[in-house]
Design a protein around this nucleic acid. Sequence first.
DNA 1: GCTCCCAGTTTGGTCGTACCAAACCAGAGC
DNA 2: GCTCTGGTTTGGTACGACCAAACTGGGAGC
Lengths: 240, 240
Amino acid sequence: MAKDGVREERAANRGRAADELFRTFSEMIARGELKEGDTLPPEREIVETYGVSRTVAREAVQALANRGLVEARPRFRPVVRRPSFESAIDSMGSVVSQLMGEPDGVRNLFETRILTEAGLAREAARHATPADISKLARALQANREAIHDSVQFYETDRRFHGLLFEMTGNPVLIATHRAFVEWLAPQWVQMQKLRDRNATNYEAHVEIFDAIQKGDPDAAEAALRRHLAEAWEQVRGTFK
Amino acid sequence: MAKDGVREERAANRGRAADELFRTFSEMIARGELKEGDTLPPEREIVETYGVSRTVAREAVQALANRGLVEARPRFRPVVRRPSFESAIDSMGSVVSQLMGEPDGVRNLFETRILTEAGLAREAARHATPADISKLARALQANREAIHDSVQFYETDRRFHGLLFEMTGNPVLIATHRAFVEWLAPQWVQMQKLRDRNATNYEAHVEIFDAIQKGDPDAAEAALRRHLAEAWEQVRGTFK
DNA sequence: GCTCCCAGTTTGGTCGTACCAAACCAGAGC
DNA sequence: GCTCTGGTTTGGTACGACCAAACTGGGAGC
């Protein structure tokens, strides 16, 4: 009863041949048969190799692209991208941007950022190496020099906060920072014009840095929370 | 007229008609024209309304489904799902599972969990309401009663930790917990058999609870870190 | 021999039609 | 009122065709 077997398999798969093809390719990528930078076969070749229609082949490739496992551009063979937490977070992008519509969405995300970064500040205060400290010092210096250039200040601000994430050497956290920045950026641009805030924010960074350098987790967390809470007030202010 | 609009737009974009359609629908969802639970039009109707081929219509719907904006099942009209952080994290699932292949992937993720949960433990110690405390107490009680049933213990364990996330009332964090559990679960099942560990883990939970109840953030964090670090050792042990 | 250009080929994107199977629906027959 | 039944709806799949842009190879011109 081969037919029944096929039908059963289909039923188990919710009846989608494309899903099976999708799984086939993702497993190939997982196993390393398809390495980063490799290209998928042309659609017409997939058709022939796997005995499916081009419809199915295309759907599978689209699914791979949607999940960030391959990068597909018109008229180019899809390129395999080894999945990173970055690409994972990328795939959330469009969904998250929808959530930003509601004020609570922004608030919740920001709150999460505060919690995460507060933890990182403590971590930094406890485990920062001299090399970490000097990196932070340099970022702080750059931040100070950019006080009168809001665009530049934004960059150096981002860099300073980003260092807290990078110091862990944990790609998940590094990707998380990128996500925070990317998702919250739209809320930020509106307040970039408040130049007088730059000096205040720089001072806050100094406080955080000092606490980390002294190895005082409580002070580091407190300073960071003050800093971000203040930033939140500014964001919320431009809302209402 | 709508037809001409669509065609013009496409000409400007030089391709990717499906992306246009995708944006059209996601904006409808964002604006609330399509509410949670509503159904998308049948594919053949989309074809007619927007003057595209069924290929394009299907691709757009598929993209919506991949992003978790709609839920599509064979032979049923796609149902609109208001994007939640949960669905966003869902869309990362397949990518993340690939990353778990590398030991570092698991470690990095677990490290992130420790950082997050340590922060939550502090938060709980400082801001837990009597209601929160009693919820924790009940979870702890259930945890104790399940010491001799590993499956049940796993459930109550999960619940106890989950409460730390839920206490914030922040859906981002709640979804994060679900993600941690889901992604790390495969590493967990292998160690469920170590029944003697249950008692140890329960004791750790008690420590955490006590610290929270006393309102001692440092103790709460320390207890939680000890607990998770120990769990990590167990996971790593089953690896090598 | 080298460069440059052009026609033919590859490849993804779109369209249209056709058919299937499961779910749905409405009316017949009891 | 109930069940059975056959037509309709709807998503899934298959072919086949055409387009536009990128790629390729080889010949024209220097």
